[in-house]
């Protein structure tokens, strides 16, 4: 799985961070950082939840 973020769409609502903190991080300036572009398989469910919950649909997954 590969995680792609459209940073222009991202509004820093933070839903992905809640769903998968191992993969997504918001810094002090509300900028989103991808901690693992290719996450470990045990995180796939969390990452899928993150993509699903993003209100802006800014996260796409290449499975």
């Amino acid at each position: 799985m590969k995680v792609l973020v459209d940073y222009d769409l991202c509004e820093a609502n933070g839903y992905c961070v809640k769903a998968a903190p191992e993969v997504f991080k918001l810094d002090d300036e509300d900028k989103l950082h991808l901690l693992a572009e290719v996450p470990d398989p045990e995180l796939f469910d969390k990452v899928r939840a993150a993509a699903r919950r993003c209100p802006r649909k800014a996260i796409t997954l290449e499975e």
Binding site: L9, E11, A12, N13, G14, Y15, K18, D30, P55, R56
Partner: peptide, 17 residues
């Protein structure tokens, strides 16, 4: 909380943080 927001709602999550 947490709010059920969708695209077009604006940065409510950022605001609440």
């Amino acid at each position: 909380t947490p709010p059920l927001i969708c695209d077009g709602d604006g940065p409510i999550g950022l605001y609440r943080r």
